[in-house]
């Protein structure tokens, strides 16, 4: 192992040729072509992800189906159900076959989308917003306000929300509609949003730029709205999207248990519940609404997860 270099352990003083190792100016400003901040970066990242587009397209599709079901089927879901056709297989008129009552499965799925999505969106409108407000108040004021609100959240959090909804729905069974179901679910899901919001507010509140704002003489409230809240929102959006998915599942579970939407209302949960007795004879009546339900929930879950991976640098590292 010999080499051409000079003897070792000598006082040789090596200098790299300056032409090969040019020295750049200290701390030069290098600007990229495009402006970037958290939101534009996240968008640039999301734009490149197929899963984001697939889930967005499915979500949009389900929203359009829910709003305008008649665009997708001309067969009314209930009218014209003939018991004679009970459990008939797929045909040209009824591409997914018929239920036990002789109703068109496809049409019922299309018309059932509304209930699921409505419950989902009302739940996040109620519990997401309530949770975000309670969380930011707790984080903003701190002290005893924080303790009281968070202990209250602990109490609501200590009852599994579907069980709580079962009790509420049992009591209010006379008044059931989409809003009551959403309320029953949302009443016990707000603490998770509140917790995320609070911890984000506390994190941002302690950052130096908020202290710099205080030193500038900005009021606490102005700081909250100008600096703290905008920086606290991203994780809350993610949690909200995921709880939308959970709310849709919860509605279906309640309807399945018979304490959700009234049996007359078109809903995937109700249809699955009604089809369970025909599982062996006509599994299609159970499988198709289940599939619709699963794809909807999956779309929101994937949407939420891709959003998280783009907005949260910690989650990005897991990719």
């Amino acid at each position: 192992m010999s080499s051409n270099t000079a003897p070792r352990r000598s006082a040789d003083h090596f200098v790299a040729p300056v032409s090969e190792t040019p020295v750049a100016a200290i701390d030069q400003v290098k600007l990229s072509g495009q402006r970037s901040n958290l939101w534009t970066d996240a968008w640039r990242d999301l734009r490149r992800r197929p899963l984001f587009w697939v889930s967005s397209i499915f979500i949009l599709l389900f929203i359009v189906v829910a709003l305008f079901p008649t665009l997708f089927t001309s067969v009314p879901p209930n009218a014209g159900c003939q018991l004679v056709d009970s459990n008939a297989g797929p045909s040209a008129d009824h591409i997914l076959g018929l239920t036990k009552q002789g109703c068109d499965v496809y049409s019922r799925i299309v018309h059932g989308a509304g209930a699921s999505l409505a419950v989902g969106f009302i739940v996040i409108a109620l519990s997401g917003i309530t949770g975000a407000i309670i969380g930011s108040i707790a984080g903003f004021f701190g002290g005893w306000v924080d303790s009281v609100l968070m202990r209250l959240g602990d109490i609501f959090f200590s009852i599994p929300y579907i069980l709580a909804a079962v009790v509420i729905m049992s009591v209010f069974s006379a008044y059931v509609n989409v809003f009551v179901v959403a309320l029953a679910i949302g009443a016990f899901t707000w603490p998770s949003t509140a917790r995320v919001m609070r911890s984000e507010v506390l994190r941002v509140k302690n950052s130096d730029f908020v202290m710099a704002g205080t030193a500038l003489g900005q009021s606490r409230l102005a700081l909250m709205f100008k600096h703290v809240l905008p920086n606290s929102i991203p994780p809350v959006i993610v949690v909200t999207t995921l709880s939308l998915a959970a709310a849709i599942t919860a509605e279906a579970t309640l309807s399945f248990l018979g304490v959700g939407l009234p049996s007359g209302t078109m809903s995937w949960g109700n249809d699955i519940s009604a089809a369970q007795s025909d599982l062996r004879s006509n599994p299609a009546t159970l499988i198709y609404p289940s599939l619709a339900l699963t794809i909807t929930v999956l779309s929101f879950v994937i949407f939420g997860e891709t959003l998280r991976e783009s907005l949260d640098p910690k989650a990005r590292a897991l990719r």
Binding site: T253, S290, T294, L298, V301
Partner: peptide
């Protein structure tokens, strides 16, 4: 992700 999205009663069936 799939198992996370399928409601429990559907998995049962």
């Amino acid at each position: 992700l799939l198992f996370l999205s399928v409601p429990i009663f559907v998995i049962c069936f």
